[in-house]
Write a protein that binds this DNA or RNA. Structure first.
Lengths: 187, 187
DNA sequence: TTGGTTGTGTACTGATCAGTACAGTATATA
DNA sequence: TATATACTGTACTGATCAGTACACAACCAA
């Protein structure tokens, strides 16, 4: 029983990398089995509904991870400034300083947008709203907070697109630096 | 003979919308024929090398369009400020105020990145460099100009990702407004 | 060791994939 | 009207697609 859980988790992590690299429709089952090392038997055992369930599981895991490591610190009522700082650090590490792209972004621009639209929407709105809440608690007005939060999330996504496009992770690092600077210092 | 050119041009325009909506691997030939109204016979007549040539033609057309309508005005030596202004107007119109996404961005995040990497890279570097050159001529230092240009292109791409993800074009309009404000006014 | 559950490899299915072949139609010039 | 070229519909190919069936292996508890 514990074995199942552990291995399904490993499968999800491996699947995430496949979908991240090739998108949803670019990830054929042949490619998935090859890149994850899992045979069809195992994959359909863990995900009886097939590819769509695999993608759902991956998105769910991304959601879960960001909730725990990014959104929760932002919603910490005592230290909003510290939560924002940690968000930048965590995001930088998660995207490997620009060498990795955002799986949710990949799904958003691909044809999978129609399939997973609700989840994609929720991911970005949760992020933006959590950041806006933190900013508001540092003393910004509602409008300033929402506007700045949107600017930051937009900037991160755009930087990932350009870093990938130009094969230059430094674009991401520079963007993070600019975005940090654009936030009124407090605490 | 004039007919050929006109119809191939129409084909490219129609193809662009298919690739934009569904990405490269999400655009099956069945979907392409259906959405463009062109049969396989016509498609392979215009694009003998198939789908890859269709995508190349579309990317080429995007390049050509941006060169003419965006990069050229930026490189106009007499009125850099006016060129930047026009860039924002043109970009806003081109992306239908956030209702449309960037085809090059779609290809950059999808599995087509490996296939069309060179062209994708060139598109974004040309844009960024043209904008940086214009900014420099408004009086910014080299570094300020490059940094600001990168910020703007990153912001536009990120805004398109988020507008699409959250199905809210206003995200794009707000981003454009912020980016315009971030540019030192001159002229 | 036995029995049940969990996990896996393999061989298959029908559908869809990109691409080809080619006969046939439209068109434009002469 | 004749004819060459541009264009298009259709029927086909073999490869690959997602998904299924199922026998078998690994494991764990009794």
């Amino acid at each position: 029983m514990p074995r199942e859980i552990a291995e399904r988790g490993d499968a999800v992590a491996a699947l995430a990398e496949v979908f991240r690299e090739h998108g949803y429709s670019g990830s054929s089952l042949a490619r998935i089995t090859q890149q994850t090392g899992l045979g069809k038997g195992s994959l359909y055992h863990f995900f009886p509904d097939g590819k769509e369930e695999m993608a759902e599981a991956v998105l769910e895991e991304v959601d879960r991870w960001f909730s725990e490591h990014v959104f929760s610190p932002l919603l910490d009522p005592v230290a909003p400034g510290r939560g924002i700082e940690r968000m930048f650090e965590t995001v930088d590490r998660y995207f490997r300083s620009g060498e990795r792209i955002c799986l949710v972004g990949v799904f958003a621009l691909g044809d999978s947008q129609s399939r997973f639209g609700a989840r994609i929407n929720r991911y970005f709105s949760t992020w933006t709203e959590a950041l806006a809440a933190a900013l508001k608690r540092t003393g910004l007005t509602d409008e300033q907070a929402s506007e700045t939060a949107e600017e930051v999330v937009v900037g991160i996504q755009g930087a990932l697109v350009l870093a990938r496009s130009r094969q230059d992770p430094k674009i991401f690092s520079r963007a993070l630096r600019r975005l940090k600077r654009s936030i009124p210092v407090s605490e």
